[in-house]
């Protein structure tokens, strides 16, 4: 038995029928076809599924879809505006902070939430804000460099 719910995804109001046991991650990827949000571990450990709920980073693999009814959800698909990459995306591109790219959507959303609350974080604060997002490729240094570059306003659009 499915249950109807509404939520705002990347600024657009969506009304969908969901299974009560469905996670937000499943609904985003399978019902709304927003496959930019990745399923890594499905256990809260890797951060690949990070999205913003009312502006706060949350792990969509352990959040039930019905728990965000009526809330505002932002995914990686909503980060670029009017075809222009977000300054974090610009910085990741320039600094070589993405390799395979699997962790990148989650990392970018964690970084966006960090900068929204703390526009000029120290390197330590960046590391702490991103500690929930595992990357198997980059070794993290370039990711931290890129967030710092974005915070300095380099690549602003």
């Amino acid at each position: 038995m499915k249950v109807m719910m509404s939520l705002t995804v990347n600024g657009k109001l969506e009304t969908i029928a969901v299974r009560p046991g469905a996670t937000l991650l499943e609904v985003l990827r399978e019902d709304l076809r927003l496959t930019g949000t990745k399923r890594g571990c499905d256990h809260g450990d890797c951060g690949a599924c990070t999205v913003l709920v009312d502006g706060e980073p949350r792990l969509s693999c352990i959040t039930l879809a019905l728990q965000v009814r009526g809330r505002r959800v932002d995914t990686i698909e909503g980060l670029a505006r009017e075809g222009y990459p977000h300054r974090l995306q610009e910085a990741f591109d320039r600094e070589g902070a993405a390799q395979c790219g699997f962790c990148t959507p989650g990392v970018l959303l964690s970084a966006a939430a960090l900068l929204a609350g703390n526009p000029h974080p120290t390197r330590e604060e960046v590391r702490d804000g991103l500690a929930g997002n595992l990357c198997r490729c980059t070794g993290f240094q370039k990711i931290v460099d890129a967030v710092e570059a974005a915070a300095r306003g380099e690549g602003d659009r």
């Binding site: 809260g44 990070t50 706060e56 980073p57 949350r58 792990l59 500690a131 929930g132 997002n133």
Partner: peptide
């Protein structure tokens, strides 16, 4: 505890 996104939830 855990990480920032874990702690928000």
């Amino acid at each position: 505890v855990g990480s920032v996104p874990l702690r928000f939830g």
